[in-house]
Simulated assay, not measured.
Amino acid sequence: MSYLPTRIAAAAAAGTVLLAGCGSTSSSPATNTGTNTSAATGKKTVTVLAAASLTEAFKKIADEVMKQHPDLDIKISFGASSTLATQLNNGVDADIIALADEKSKTTITPSLIEGKPTQLFATNRLEIATPSGNPAHVTGLASLSSSSIDTVLCAKQVPCGRAAQTVLTKANVNPHVISYETDVKATLAKVKTGDADAAIVYQTDVSSAGSAVTGVVIPEDQNTVTKLPIVQLTDTEGAKEFYQAVTSSEGQDVLKSLGFGAA
């Protein structure tokens, strides 16, 4: 069964953002909503917890799934993977959880995901983001050690923060950090607004920001690769549809168009 037609993969490649019909897509913590049928619309709710770095990709995929299945209402809560794992451990109902790295999955109570359909569905790498035009003339990781370069990083307990520490250690760089942010989107925002000279984020986030930022590539020998897992937590039809849409070849095309690598 095809979940994401070729036209959607093409639209994603062109950078078209399809938001219509997506439910909750904020980065605020999810509430105990779970899978249910809305009395107002009669639609079946599919609750998805997803890493902030998946914002653009999952909005596109959710939009197409709802077009093909108008009886579904997909509600996505984006945030730091560490926060999402904690929410799940604390009893938040969800049908799907997708995280930014494998370590985040290990923090979920094993009984909650044991025997559930699970797959590594994408990879990501890091890149330095600077304000548009790179006014501080950042040339690479070594530049970040200068006291004149204000750098922001993701909090150390979230995937992009862990990955940043890995590349900085590998490059033997001690950056001048002015703040640690809650997730990758909050980290990128500091650069977009000009409140920081540089940030280490995912290359997919630099790509999605377009002309609002200028990226500085981190060489492969200094970089690191994160692998993203997705878990289907419930056996509802809506959960199956979304899980299969993400892991299908068409879903992979959407992810690839936004800069993600194959798992």
Rank of each mutant, 00 (worst) to 15 (best):
V216Q: 03
K190S: 05
T247W: 11
Y180H: 08
K190V: 01
A212N: 11
A245D: 00
D235A: 10
A245H: 04
S179W: 11
E241D: 01
K192N: 02
T182I: 14
L228T: 10
K227A: 06
P219E: 02
S207Y: 15
T193Y: 08
Q252D: 15
Y243I: 01
S248L: 08
V246S: 11
V184H: 10
A212F: 09
L228G: 01
T247F: 00
Q244D: 12
L188F: 06
D205W: 06
Q244F: 03
L188K: 10
V216R: 00
Q232H: 02
A212M: 10
V206C: 05
V217W: 00
V254G: 03
T226L: 14
Y180G: 01
G259A: 05
D221G: 10
D183P: 10
S249D: 12
I230E: 04
S179E: 09
L258Y: 14
D253F: 02
T236N: 08
P229Y: 10
I200Y: 01
E250M: 01
A245G: 05
S207P: 09
K240E: 01
V191P: 06
G194A: 14
G194L: 08
T193E: 09
K192I: 09
T214M: 04
G238M: 01
S208M: 14
A186F: 14
D221R: 13
S257E: 07
G215D: 09
E220P: 01
T224D: 12
L233N: 04
A212L: 03
E250D: 15
E237C: 08
V217K: 11
A196V: 07
G194H: 07
Q222D: 11
T214S: 04
K190M: 03
G194E: 01
G238K: 00
V184T: 10
F242T: 03
S179I: 04
T204V: 15
A199H: 06
V254W: 00
E237G: 12
D197S: 14
D221P: 11
G259N: 15
Q222F: 08
A186L: 12
V254N: 06
A186K: 10
K256Y: 12
F242Q: 02
I200A: 02
E241H: 03
T182F: 15
K185D: 08
T204R: 12
Q252M: 06
S257N: 10
D235K: 15
V217D: 07
S249W: 03
A189H: 14
E220W: 03
E220D: 15
E237A: 15
D197L: 12
T214W: 07
A209M: 12
S179K: 03
K227I: 08
H176D: 11
V225F: 00
A189S: 15
V177C: 00
S249K: 05
L258P: 02
A198C: 09
E220V: 08
S248F: 03
V201M: 05
A239E: 02
A186G: 13
Q232M: 09
D197C: 07
L188T: 13
A239P: 04
S257G: 06
A196L: 10
T224H: 06
V225Q: 14
A209G: 09
V191R: 00
E181R: 07
E237M: 08
K240Q: 11
A212P: 07
K192F: 09
S257H: 14
S211W: 06
D205N: 15
K227H: 15
